[in-house]
């Protein structure tokens, strides 16, 4: 329990170091008929991105075109990958998910499952 909460506190700061993978910034927007997930992937080529879908998550992994070095706490760490696992929003039609990569931003469109029935007005 302690380990988990401590990890969540320092997680944002040290995930990069623990996993040796950079965590990209992402943003999820809800629209009327779809969810738009954007992931910031600078220094990445389209061919080096993989998007994997499981029943509950979407996993984005991308190889950097150059090694990115960070100097922190008197040591230098090298990073070659981005990786992020993002929970899928509810009510997504997983068969219709599509993705585009433009200007270093991966845009994943996740259409919602449209359900409902017409109500007759008396």
């Amino acid at each position: 329990m302690f380990e988990k909460s401590l990890y969540s506190i320092v997680g944002d700061l040290f995930d990069d170091y623990v996993n040796k993978e950079l965590i990209p910034l992402s943003h999820l927007t809800e629209k009327e008929t779809e969810w738009i997930l954007e992931i910031d992937l600078p220094l990445v080529n389209k061919k080096d991105i993989s998007v994997t879908l499981s029943s509950r998550h979407i996993v984005i992994k991308a190889k950097l075109e150059k090694t990115y070095c960070v100097s922190k706490l008197n040591c230098v760490r090298e990073f070659n990958y981005f990786k992020k696992m993002i929970p899928l929003p509810l009510n997504v039609d997983t068969r219709k998910i599509s993705a585009k990569f433009n200007e270093g931003i991966l845009r994943i469109c996740m259409p919602k499952i449209i359900t409902g029935k017409k109500i007759q007005i008396e």
């Binding site: 944002d12 700061l13 950079l22 965590i23 990209p24 910034l25 910031d40 600078p42 220094l43 990115y68 270093g104």
Partner: peptide, 14 residues
């Protein structure tokens, strides 16, 4: 430096 600025700015942006 555009790509590196984007990489370096991740934490501050968050």
């Amino acid at each position: 430096q555009i790509d590196f600025l984007r990489l370096q700015g991740r934490q501050l942006m968050e």
